[in-house]
């Protein structure tokens, strides 16, 4: 089975966020594999181990994404591809990224493509379905279970808490929801092996794409931090009186009930 994983290097949003010159300050910040993409890597490895085949992890970004790709290789992926757009594209959007990925994948005869359902930095969750549409293959988003036998696929999809059991076939793109699996930590031998695994680096040119082919359709005008919340009111006194006071406050001060 020919399996591809779409992986994004993201800012760890558990970090403190600050702005410098109108942009998110990345100095000294921790970067990670987008957590939902980690589920995707794990699932790809499990499917390969059960069905045979090969797992290729793709990332669109800058040279720095090599670190996260190596981590995926250390977890057990076979190959990695970094499409480096640093020099050509300053302000891409989801249209840009999906167009590039689809262009790379169009002649790869992928059986299964797995992505995270959303990236925790940009939070738009568009790239998976967009890539599937460009490749004209079906997709199922936010999956929590994937079973494949003889080319038949059964998927459990999380729909705002309910589960849909869906039957479909390959080729297929799915996006991972939390609960799909428990991603493994790279083992020491895995990390050693990852250093020798192939990591191909491509640029737009290699995909026969021009900058204008992938020019963003949207633009960010401004990034800002939410106003700092003032410390709330911690009540005191007898618990019973606090409860009465709280209900009154919610009613007369906060006016939410």
């Amino acid at each position: 089975m020919n399996i591809y994983v779409l992986l994004k290097r993201t800012f760890d949003t558990e970090e403190k966020i600050s702005l410098t010159g109108g942009k998110i300050n990345e100095d000294g910040a921790e970067f990670i594999i987008n957590p939902y993409d980690e589920y995707a890597v794990e699932e790809a490895i499990q499917v390969r181990d059960a069905q045979g085949g090969e797992v290729t992890v793709i990332s669109v970004g800058t040279e720095e994404a090599e670190k996260q790709l190596r981590t995926a290789l250390a977890m057990g992926a076979d190959k990695a591809v970094l499409i480096n757009i640093e020099d050509e594209i300053e302000n891409g959007d989801q249209f840009t990224t999906s167009k590039i990925i689809a262009e790379y994948l169009k002649d790869k005869e992928a059986d299964l493509i797995i992505a995270g359902n959303v990236a925790i930095d940009g939070g738009s969750g568009q790239v998976g379905p967009r890539v599937a549409e460009l490749l004209e293959i079906p997709y199922i988003t936010t999956i929590t279970k994937l079973e494949i036998s003889d080319g038949n696929v059964s998927v459990t999809r999380d729909v705002e808490g309910d589960s849909e059991i869906i039957e479909t076939s390959l080729p297929l793109l799915v996006t991972a929801q939390q609960g799909l699996n428990e991603p493994r930590y790279p083992s020491l031998p895995g990390i050693m092996k990852a250093k020798k695994k192939p990591l191909e680096e491509l640029e737009l040119d290699d995909l026969d794409l021009e900058e204008e082919d992938v020019e963003a359709k949207t633009k960010t005008l401004e990034i800002y931090l939410p106003p700092k919340k003032e410390a709330g009111k911690v009540l005191s006194g007898e618990i019973k009186d606090q409860v009465t006071e709280l209900v009154q406050l919610l009613r007369s001060e906060a006016k939410v009930i």
């Binding site: 949003t13 939070g123 005008l221």
Partner: peptide
């Protein structure tokens, strides 16, 4: 964006 820790203002350009 960034799990609600920041916001962005966007427009459609095309």
């Amino acid at each position: 964006i960034y799990s609600g820790k920041a916001f962005e203002k966007k427009i459609v350009t095309d």
